[in-house]
Design a protein around this nucleic acid. Structure first.
Lengths: 119, 119
DNA sequence: AAGATAGGTGACCAAAAGGTCACATGTCAA
DNA sequence: TTGACATGTGACCTTTTGGTCACCTATCTT
């Protein structure tokens, strides 16, 4: 099962931070990414390297050698596939309207939500 | 961190199966979903219930009481947000073209991929 | 009201994932 | 070519997660 790698890769916060960083700007080396990660949390270079490897195996990140450096690029295709898996093309405009509001979770139908109500 | 719940929820294969099932048809009870899961793998009702609870906490699934049953509905909004997080609106058409091909990973630029080549 | 059915919760155990380390390899600059 | 720099790999430990169980509550039917 190949998509498993993608979802497992996305399940870790550090790896999502790496994707965010690469989304902002592509083509960063391991050392550069290590710096960014360490602005948020303490982690060894080995840890960052391991995370990048998982991202590469999931094909969320593409790696290109440039001399002795390895430059990392974001590949958004698997993300797109996740989207397509559970969002119907016909309902997409509807969903987009909701996400643009971004407050739907509370405004939609509060009575529908199974929180703590006993009517 | 709230999005953490979403990604953790998606990281499990059984939960993705549940989402797939609900994507096909909404409004199923726990018992009904248990049956579907058991067509793929052995799992107790408690296990399925636990998975559904995680999906609900991640807001990927909405639950509505109907008598003594609990009906489950797919909520695709978090999926949409994942998409929006790493796919730029301007590059989206480009990505869509690629995903339609679905073979880009191999066809793109094989030399770029850091597999086992020593040129 | 009473039995049957649908579902919820907390504790517990086994499996998997995150993180670190000590090595090693390959490339750039002089 | 040689030293310095950037990075890769496998083993190990700790933490998290998946799964089950026993017991409970709530609702429907008669």
């Amino acid at each position: 099962m190949e998509d498993d790698l993608v979802f497992k890769a996305l399940a870790d916060r550090t790896r999502r931070l790496l994707l965010d960083t690469l989304f902002e700007r592509d083509g960063r080396s391991l050392g550069e990414l290590e710096e960014v990660v360490n602005q948020h949390t303490e982690m060894s270079r080995y840890g960052v390297s391991k995370h990048l490897r998982l991202l590469a195996e999931a094909d969320l990140v593409t790696v290109r050698r440039s001399g002795r450096e390895r430059l990392h690029y974001l590949n958004a295709v698997p993300i797109r596939l996740i989207h397509d898996r559970w969002i119907d093309k016909y309902t997409e405009p509807h969903i987009r309207a909701l996400t643009d509001l971004k407050t739907l979770a509370e405004t939609e139908t509060p009575a529908e939500r199974e929180g703590h109500h006993d009517d």
